[in-house]
Design a protein around this nucleic acid. Structure first.
Length: 972
DNA sequence: GCGCCCCGCTTTTTT
DNA sequence: AGCGGGGCGC
């Protein structure tokens, strides 16, 4: 057994795992086998100290970490045993104790959990009511900070002096009063109340034999207290952590808890892990260099175990859009040139803030690279889901006035803002929960002091009826567990919810409805008694003499438990993968959410001042650590990049962390050349089989650019890009590139079936932006030629060489000479008419052309955050998309030489089967003169795309070669 | 007075 | 993608 547990551990890890010390600190830098050590320690404690799993608590910080930890422990000790451990986030473990024993400290039995939105709403209302000028978000943050320190509203009120503090104190007190009245605990309360519980009812944790904590550097004061309390009987504690990876200071994490712990338990054994098993030497060296800029930090050893490998890349790009395009091209280049040594799932894009993902998603969606977005908004935050959950919450706890106020007029019942406001205010004055008050009014037992319209009264009655109906359902059969689904179904029926969605969200009601279906599925699952049991793991919390457990049966608390857990659950990652498609997907994530994870190739875009370090960050050292955390996620290839202008077109300066003298020597200026040797190196670092040299040669032929040499290294725009900045003012800077298909009537060469074709977008697809750039280029050439001064002139110029060239290239010249982009009626985004020959300057294109970002971005991709209904959702979306409509405007034939017209449609084209294909959302319609403007069905189009496109690809190559770029298209 | 719709503005990180 | 404000219609 010991052999099994210890196999594959180095000596430091072994020491940590087998130590006889009761209190062990393992300081584990990135990639040093932190989780491995912790899981092995759990297994060791079980096997060698004969501890019982239900007497062990394992705490993590994020849901994801908990999931992963559980998975790894399961592999070690088996399913049965792993299940019995008390393993979860601090918050979820606290919730379990509170649900079980909370009544002993005066908590309501079915208290709810206030999520961020609830807290925010409460604070906002208090501020409005008291006519204060404090920012709601800030006030909420301050409340949270105080709570994290363990200071409650009364304590704070006693100590505060200045009027400003008193003002805040008032908000804090009102806020707390509001939570109490609504029987809600916010996130911080979960921890605070649990501390109170364990302090007053010590027996609750009398059984706890060992406590293990992951990512200890992220604990805040209250979590530290909680740790002490969990372990108060035996004081057996193992923690792992790394001060360099402390990135939750904003949540009041205190690095000094590490030293505090050594003071509290003087016998603490500290073990340093120093070998990194994750990253190549070059990456590690660069990361070390960055983190060492922090001079206050104690020097630390970190030994690479891998070869030096490829140096990381620090790339400059002209703007955010270009950065995204470049990133995508590098993904494709690496994937193709390494002969599929790398899958999309081997790539990660790590961002300082989730909002930065938009540009990335657009570019990836564009290129048909499947991706998933981790973090960002959660499934349960979607409006339609929140709405239903609010109904459930009110049915479960009608005193929850917050939720009540939100749903009272949704769907609209003619109970308007003014009426609601009045009711809320009156209820407040009467010191009555809103629910009691409106129920009395609706039932005619009370008169409102303000007049309520007849219609409003009707609506109110209807609403009260629904809630009462729901409650009746929930209590229908006292001997049976509440079927959460039944209640949910009732609400959906009473609200006529499907119809409501259809009417209210014309565009995407399908997807919203499928989210509802997803929620129903989850409710069904939660209604299963066995499942419910495991949700709380009731069986593992011991009945203890002297502490009477709350009569927590599965009977009447199913709903309450379901709701409380939802508040603590981000969308379940494991589930998404379990039911999942085996489509390999690139990961987009915030750096925070990426902690603890690793990928062969990591991109960290937007490395500019204001993003990282973030403009609103208070602690630059923490921002630096954040960059360090991001960098150390990479195993073999690491790209950092910064645009000269951010997505708002503001000037952006490369991050100070990267601007320091000396930093540059750790980086390359552009993506690596992928030689056979380089590929072999990657394969070794990743422990994978390397493709043969001849395979790689074949792959190389596929790309028309096998080096990262399109964008100039100095961060300026390439010639084609510069053209647009010369005063013509295309205004495309903000434009998301749209894929445009150019069809010609030439036949094709091979294209589609090279390895990796699935990932690489169909060759020849080029961005609309590029199209325009090339159009611009054409224009400037024409000007130099003195052949033409404007589009019109070119159009009229049918002379010789020029003409031939035009014919050879077909669409561009045609496009330019006789641009015929015709507006389609749109179901997704608005798409303005776009005719480059008419007034180019009058209105920025970004205004006129807005591609259906969402749709393009989602194609072939899923976002984890959309929950498990995604697949259906996509299918719905595509299947029910309106068919491409005929252009409302006929193409006018000016008589210019042309071989193709382009049509843009912002509607997703209908396609029945192939969801993964990167099919166009824009379509070109060929014009064979006889049959102009014939709209081809998308399905047909799709199958012919490849053939139609290939020659165009060659054309592109030629065009580029004009400027001296290598162009594979020319060589064949 | 009330409700609905459109537009423009802003967006750190997590439980 | 949400929120507040303004405009408009009932």
């Amino acid at each position: 057994m010991a052999g099994q547990i210890l196999s594959g551990l180095n000596s430091a890890q072994r020491d940590a795992v087998t130590s006889d010390a009761d209190v062990v600190q393992v300081l584990a830098p990135p990639g040093s086998g932190k989780t491995k050590t912790l899981t092995a320690r759990v297994a060791y404690l079980l096997a060698h100290r004969q501890l019982k799993p239900w007497n062990i608590i394992v705490c993590t910080f994020t849901v994801k970490a908990a999931t992963e930890m559980k998975e790894r422990i399961r592999k070690f000790v088996g399913d049965e045993c792993a299940k019995q451990l008390k393993l979860g986030t601090f918050h979820s473990i606290a919730l379990r104790y509170l649900k079980q024993y909370g009544v002993h400290i005066g908590l309501a039995k079915d208290f709810g959990v206030a999520d961020t939105a609830d807290s925010k709403a409460i604070v906002k209302r208090i501020i409005r009511q008291n006519d204060l000028s404090i920012d709601a978000g800030q006030a909420r943050g301050r409340i949270s900070t105080q709570k994290a320190k363990g200071i409650d509203s009364e304590q704070f009120a006693r100590t505060c002096k200045s009027t400003e503090q008193q003002e805040f104190s008032q908000i804090y007190q009102d806020y707390q009063a509001m939570l109490d009245a609504s029987e809600l605990l916010d996130y911080d309360d979960l921890l605070l109340k649990c501390c109170t519980l364990l302090r007053t009812q010590r027996q609750c944790v009398a059984n706890i034999e060992a406590l293990l904590i992951d990512e200890f550097q992220d604990t805040n004061n209250i979590q530290y207290q909680l740790m002490s309390l969990f372990a108060q009987h035996r004081n057996v504690i193992t923690i792992v952590g790394d001060p360099d990876q402390s990135i939750y200071g904003f949540r009041s994490a205190e690095i000094k808890n590490l030293s505090r712990m050594r003071e509290s338990w003087p016998d603490t054994l500290t073990i340093n892990l120093e070998e990194n098993y994750r990253s190549s030497g070059a990456i590690l060296l660069a990361a070390q260099h960055i983190i060492e800029q922090d001079e206050a930090r104690p020097p630390k050893k970190l030994q690479a175990t891998h070869a030096f490998g490829l140096r990381p890349i620090l790339r400059k790009l002209p703007h955010a859009q270009a950065e995204a395009e470049w990133l995508v091209s590098e993904v494709k280049r690496l994937q193709t040139l390494t002969g599929n040594l790398l899958q999309p799932s081997d790539f990660a894009v790590l961002l300082r803030s989730a909002a930065l993902s938009r540009v990335m998603e657009a570019a990836l969606g564009q290129a048909g690279v499947p991706y998933r977005m981790v973090g960002g908004s959660r499934f349960y935050d979607r409006v339609e889901i929140k709405l239903l959950l609010d109904y459930l919450r009110v049915i479960n706890t009608p005193t929850n006035s917050e939720a009540l106020a939100r749903i009272i007029n949704v769907p609209a019942r003619r109970v308007g803002e003014t009426t609601v406001k009045a009711l809320v205010e009156e209820a407040r004055q009467h010191r009555t929960p809103l629910w009691i008050y409106i129920k009395a009014i609706a039932q005619g037992n009370r008169r409102s002091s303000t007049r309520i319209h007849e219609t409003a009264m009707l609506g109110l009655r209807k609403f009260v009826g629904i809630i009462l109906g729901g409650r009746a359902k929930a209590e229908a059969n006292p001997s049976q567990p509440v079927a959460v689904v039944d209640v949910l179904n009732l609400v959906i029926k009473k609200l006529n919810f499907e119809k409501y969605l259809t009417e209210h969200y014309k565009e995407d009601h399908e997807s919203r409805w499928s989210n509802v279906e997803e929620l129903l599925a989850q409710a069904t699952e939660a209604s299963d008694p066995a499942r419910l049991q495991s949700l709380l793991e009731l069986s593992t919390l011991p009945a203890i003499d002297g502490v009477e457990q709350a009569e927590l049966s599965t009977k009447d608390d199913a709903l309450s438990v379901f709701l409380a857990n939802i508040a603590l659950t981000t969308t379940s990652l494991e589930k998404a993968e379990a039911d999942g498609e085996k489509v390999s997907q690139l990961t987009i994530s915030t750096i925070h959410a990426a902690k603890g994870l690793e990928w062969p190739v990591v991109f960290i875009p937007a490395c500019y001042d204001g993003s990282i370090p973030h403009s609103r960050a208070e602690d630059n050292d923490e921002e630096r650590r954040l960059l360090y955390v991001g960098m150390t996620r990479a195993q073999a290839v690491l790209y950092l990049s910064s645009p000269a202008r951010n997505s708002q077109r503001e000037e952006a300066v490369q991050s100070t962390f990267l601007n320091q003298p000396g930093v540059i020597s750790f980086f390359e200026e552009h993506g690596p050349s992928i030689s056979f040797a380089a590929t072999k190196g990657l394969a070794t670092t990743l422990g994978r089989d390397c493709p043969t040299q001849s395979e790689l040669e074949t792959c190389k032929k596929i790309l028309d650019r096998d080096e990262d040499n399109y964008w100039p290294l100095n961060g300026e725009a390439p010639f084609t890009e510069l053209a647009k900045a010369d005063g013509i003012g295309f205004g495309m800077q903000n434009m998301q590139p749209a894929t445009v298909f150019i069809s010609t009537n030439t036949t094709m060469q091979q294209a589609a079936n090279f390895p990796g074709a699935g990932l690489a977008s169909a060759p020849g697809f080029t961005s609309l932006k590029t199209r325009f750039e090339e159009a611009r280029e054409e224009l400037s050439l024409a000007q130099v030629d003195k052949r033409a001064k404007s589009a019109k002139v070119i159009e009229g110029d049918k002379s010789k060489g020029r003409k031939r060239q035009i014919e050879g290239q077909g669409s561009i010249a045609t496009f330019f000479g006789k641009p015929t982009l015709v507006k389609q009626s749109s179901s997704v985004g608005s798409l303005g008419s776009m005719d480059p020959t008419d007034d180019l300057v009058s209105e920025p294109l970004s205004k006129r052309l807005r591609p259906p970002l969402q749709d393009v971005a989602n194609r072939g991709s899923e976002r984890i955050r959309t929950g498990q209904g995604r697949r259906n959702l996509l299918q719905h979306k595509v299947r029910n998309a309106p068919l491409l409509q005929r252009p409302s405007t006929r193409v006018e034939d000016s008589g210019a030489p042309c071989s193709a017209y382009m049509f843009l449609s912002s509607s997703p084209t209908r396609q029945e089967e192939d969801l993964t294909a990167a099919e166009p959302s824009y379509e070109v319609v060929r014009d064979d003169r006889e049959d102009a403007a014939q709209v081809r069905s998308a399905t047909t189009f799709h199958t012919t795309t490849m053939q139609k496109i290939a020659p165009q690809r060659k054309t592109l190559g030629m065009r580029r070669s004009l400027q001296g770029w290598s162009a594979r298209g020319d060589k064949n």
